[in-house]
Design a binder for these strands. Structure first.
Lengths: 197, 197
DNA sequence: CCTAGATCGAACCGATCGGTACGATACCAG
DNA sequence: CTGGTATCGTACCGATCGGTTCGATCTAGG
């Protein structure tokens, strides 16, 4: 059986399946750590199919990162929304979600930030920037709801904590509870901003 | 003149010169972004010489990263020591130094953390871990001198801020003053820790 | 039934990769 | 003067890279 997959049946279906399969491989091995041939073999797809869908390895990478950013952003937002109305609870929920993520077996840091560190060119850097911008938007909403005097500045401080604890959780074994520590720090900053306002 | 360089005169001299020249290239282009041949050409050294000194590209990378970690650690420590006795001033000096670094033209994030994001294997990951451990030691000294109830936890929160603001400064153009914001956050945490103690 | 398109596996491309080998040259220690 | 060593430039190695092409195979739509 030379062609076991459904062929013409999936216009965007194949594309989504490729992205889904390629995502963990590129994440675990690094963008330059795995070749196109191996990628194709792993997802049971020929090179020709891959190149018609994505044009190049870079195209695949961009699609993978875009999907990843979208997915994790929605996931974080869901965590916030299920934390009630109190801004402090919502903020805590962000770092609780991060802590859970950091504890997962295959955790290797943020895929977007790692990608930008690997290919420090325009596409990956822009994508990481947009990713952080989305994160900042979520945090700014919380800061605004909390009535901070300068919600933008507070949200950016939280962004630094979110980013930093993810990197530390990945690269510094000596700090096991990075997200938990960052959570306390974020709440302290929130309390200080409220007291100052 | 086929051999213009001093030959037997430099046992560790050549090694140091190679490291010094290779450092900015590997930093700017990424570990996988430049080949051994190009590296050798850039520093006017033959491949044979490079491989006798470092054994492999990985060996060169490790030597470069080790030297870099040592250098930046000493630089940060010097900044702290020239900031007087007051812990708050020393803490501020750390982030002032970071802000200056982030503003330099070729800034591309922390070389150690970038390397660990690229080659997520044992050597680079361990090196990044030791690098963060050195940073943590410096911060813990300050936290201890400040009389914090839990100096280790406070220092780790500062470590998250230091790491986070460096990544954000590199990858998020929407947060220009990341180090300055992190500095304010760190001082707020210090004040809160003192008030709580 | 038949055409158009999607897919497959595999062969193939030039380029580059990390790493080695070689002969020649220059220096230093004895 | 001589022998050991460090370096040079270059050629070379096998492997892998990203990317293209091709004929065979299958399926959906007309």
């Amino acid at each position: 059986m030379p062609v076991p997959k459904g062929s013409t049946l999936d216009p965007g279906r194949t594309r989504a399946a490729i992205i889904e399969t390629a995502t963990p491989i590129l994440y675990e091995r690094g963008l330059d750590g795995v070749g196109v041939a191996e990628l194709c073999a792993a997802m049971g797809v020929s090179k020709e199919t891959l190149y018609r869908h994505f044009g190049s390895k870079e195209g695949l990478i961009e699609a993978v990162l875009e999907a990843r950013s979208e997915r994790v952003t929605q996931w974080l937002r869901a965590a916030v929304e299920s934390a009630g109305e109190e801004p402090a609870d919502q903020l805590g929920a962000v770092f609780d979600a991060l802590a859970q993520w950091h504890g997962e077996p295959g955790f290797r840091g943020c895929a977007l930030l790692n990608a930008a560190a690997q290919h420090h060119g325009a596409p990956e850097l822009d994508m990481a920037g947009r990713h952080l911008e989305r994160r900042l938007g979520l945090l700014a909403e919380i800061a605004t709801r909390a009535g901070a005097a300068d919600p933008g500045a507070l949200a950016r401080q939280w962004l630094v904590l979110v980013t930093g604890c993810t990197v530390v959780a990945d690269q510094h074994p000596g700090t096991p509870g990075a997200a938990r520590l960052a959570r306390e720090a974020a709440l302290t900053l929130l309390a200080a901003a409220r007291a100052g306002a």
